[in-house]
């Protein structure tokens, strides 16, 4: 029984394919040294990020992470400005000053990706405080990873948000590794969500590779949080297919393990669901995929044709 509309499924499939195509392109650029710095790719985590964002309202707020490309695409983003930012161009979201780790669009409620693990917790709590004090009815989606769950800011954030009953969803994308170290070496419990009970808030575990499950559960959770019941902790179990960053030789895990997770590809799972439920046929889905790749190619052309930031801009915007 399909309860998610065709429009939503189409958009979800589109954004997931855009995220995949975007990151494959970024990976290609980095491998050839065509962009500098570093990047953290989320291939394999598209359902976890995108379906969660899409379960919320467009005007809800979010904080993103260093592995945030899928998250911001999930929130809804101009791909031209995003690729331009990756390439350090003046037309990018941050005028070329932020790069991969700082994509933000504050006006639409994307309060920014964060280069510091656990750095978004406080910002999300503060944003939720604003919504409560101004009684806006909006909620905040705070993305973080399993690694950030061991930062002190995690504890302080969940504690304060629970005491003040703030409208924030703490959404842990558990991709099994904090850089190279598996979670069983960094936590004495199996599930991050188990920690919810310490704050007297609900904790949920969801299959982050299953877009339908993520979307459906997050719809319910968003309703609960919007109802003034305080924060929740959600743990989305997923896996990153690629290394931590561009310089990762991945000596800490086996190829077999990665292959096992690739068989649970979130995009293929969603495709199968859509076809089996007769929402769209293979031809329509192929077209969405092709359009997604084309959108990225177009964005690359836009970015390549964009100017670099003027040198004078280096001292602009330090202060308001």
């Amino acid at each position: 029984m399909n309860t998610i509309s065709k429009e939503i499924l189409r958009e979800m499939y589109k954004r997931m394919n855009e995220a995949r195509a975007f990151e494959e392109k970024v990976s290609y650029f980095f491998a050839r040294g065509m962009v500098h710095g570093t990047t953290h790719l989320s291939i394999g985590q598209e359902a976890s990020a995108i379906a969660a964002c899409m379960a919320l309202n467009d005007d809800d707020l979010m904080t993103s992470t260093h592995r945030g490309h899928s998250q911001v695409i999930g929130k809804g983003i101009d791909l031209n400005k995003m690729v331009a930012e990756l390439l350090g161009k003046y037309t990018g979201y941050c005028k070329g000053k932020g790069g991969s780790m700082h994509i933000a669009d504050v006006e639409v409620g994307n309060l920014g990706a964060n280069g510091v693990v656990g750095g978004g917790h406080g910002i999300a709590v503060g944003a939720a405080l604003t919504q409560k004090m101004k009684n806006t009815g909006k909620i905040v989606l705070c993305f973080f990873g399993d690694g950030a769950a061991n930062e002190g800011s995690f504890h302080e954030a969940l504690n304060l948000a629970s005491v003040w009953k703030l409208p924030v969803i703490f959404y842990c994308e558990n991709n099994q590794y904090g850089m190279s170290v598996p979670i069983d070496k960094t936590m004495n419990i199996e599930n991050v969500a188990d920690r919810a009970s310490a704050y007297g808030i609900p904790g949920y575990i969801i299959d982050g590779n299953n877009a339908i499950e993520v979307y459906t559960k997050m719809k319910e959770i968003a309703k609960y949080v919007r109802g003034g019941n305080g924060p929740v902790l959600v743990e989305s179990k997923t896996y990153r297919w690629l290394g931590h960053s561009k310089s990762d030789a991945q000596v800490y895990r086996t190829k077999e393990e990665v292959e096992t997770w690739k068989k649970k590809c979130p995009i293929q799972q969603l495709r199968k669901y859509i076809i089996e439920n007769n929402v769209m046929d293979a031809r329509e889905l192929d077209e969405i995929e092709n359009n997604a790749r084309k959108a990225i190619e177009d964005a690359v052309i836009f970015a390549n044709n964009s100017p670099n930031p003027p040198i004078e801009s280096v001292t602009e915007d330090v202060y308001a």
Partner: peptide, 26 residues
């Protein structure tokens, strides 16, 4: 109490939340 808020002893989150509240209009 709404505008004069006693907090837990949590300097990191008090300050982080101030940044988050500030960037969203407070």
């Amino acid at each position: 109490e709404e505008r004069v808020r006693d907090t837990p002893i949590s300097e990191a989150i008090i300050t982080g939340a101030a940044a988050g509240a500030a960037v969203t209009g407070m």
